[in-house]
Amino acid sequence: MPLHIYVDADACPVKDEIYKVALRREVAVTIVSNSPIRIPIHPLLARIVVGAGFDEADDWIAERADVASVVVTGDILLADRCLKAGAAVLAPTGKPFTAASIGNAIAVRAIMADLRAGGDAIGGPPPFAKTDRSRFLSALDETLGRLLRR
């Protein structure tokens, strides 16, 4: 079964890195977004533009994720759905979501949402850094290598 990378692309800061690793490894990539995003012209690269409805990109990706998929997303709930389908899931920072870590991530997400709803000013994640980009490149290459060997 050939590998495939699905990218939750609307806010993904590492699309160029995904193209670089995927083309070197000869793995197909589908960029999924709510609005058109330019992608390089290459037979392994595809773009899907879904409707603007809530979670349409997430639903499209989750319906296709399987054991031959790598999903790139920062969305914890989408990561959970894809893990349950057997996919490998990476955040744009290179952090892998795993069956062992997703429960904690969902719990922290819920706590932060409650704090924000209560009016607490808690800030957001740290700015995306050069080290995040480097860590992502390494994590994607390692993940694809591991999946291609099995």
Rank of each mutant, 00 (worst) to 15 (best):
V67N: 15
V71M: 02
R64A: 07
K130N: 07
I48L: 13
M1F: 15
V7H: 07
I41Y: 15
D58R: 09
R81M: 03
K95I: 13
M112H: 07
P125Y: 04
T73F: 08
A87V: 10
G53F: 06
I18Q: 08
I41T: 15
K84L: 14
G74A: 14
G94I: 08
G51K: 07
I48S: 09
P2V: 12
E17N: 09
D75Q: 10
V67F: 14
S33M: 01
V108R: 10
L83A: 04
D75G: 08
Y19D: 01
G103W: 12
V89L: 01
P127D: 05
P36V: 02
A87M: 09
S33D: 02
P40M: 03
P125S: 08
D114H: 08
K95A: 14
R133A: 04
L44D: 09
A107N: 15
A57G: 09
D10R: 09
V32I: 00
F54I: 12
D66V: 04
R146W: 13
T93H: 09
V50A: 03
A99R: 12
L77Y: 07
R116L: 05
T131Q: 14
I106M: 14
V27G: 01
A46I: 11
L147G: 03
A121F: 12
S138Y: 11
A85M: 11
A99C: 11
I122C: 09
D55I: 09
D8H: 01
V14G: 05
T30L: 02
V29L: 06
T131D: 12
A68Q: 14
K15G: 08
I76K: 00
I37H: 12
G94S: 08
V32P: 09
P127Q: 09
A46S: 15
E56H: 05
L90S: 12
R81A: 01
R133N: 04
A105Q: 11
L148R: 14
T73K: 11
V14N: 08
D75R: 07
F54H: 15
G118A: 05
F97Y: 12
T143W: 10
L115P: 07
R64M: 06
R64W: 03
A139L: 02
V7C: 08
G94N: 06
R38C: 11
I48F: 06
A65Q: 11
D10E: 12
D132M: 07
E56I: 00
A65D: 00
A99F: 15
V70Q: 06
Y6M: 12
D10Q: 05
A65L: 03
A117D: 10
A85W: 10
A99I: 11
I111M: 11
E56R: 04
G74K: 08
P43C: 14
D114R: 13
E56F: 00
V21C: 02
S101Q: 13
E26R: 14
A28D: 01
L137Q: 00
D8F: 00
A68K: 11
F128Q: 02
V70P: 03
D132N: 11
L83S: 00
C82W: 06
A9W: 07
A91K: 02
P40W: 00
C12Y: 07
E17Y: 06
L147N: 07
L45V: 15
H42M: 13
V89C: 06
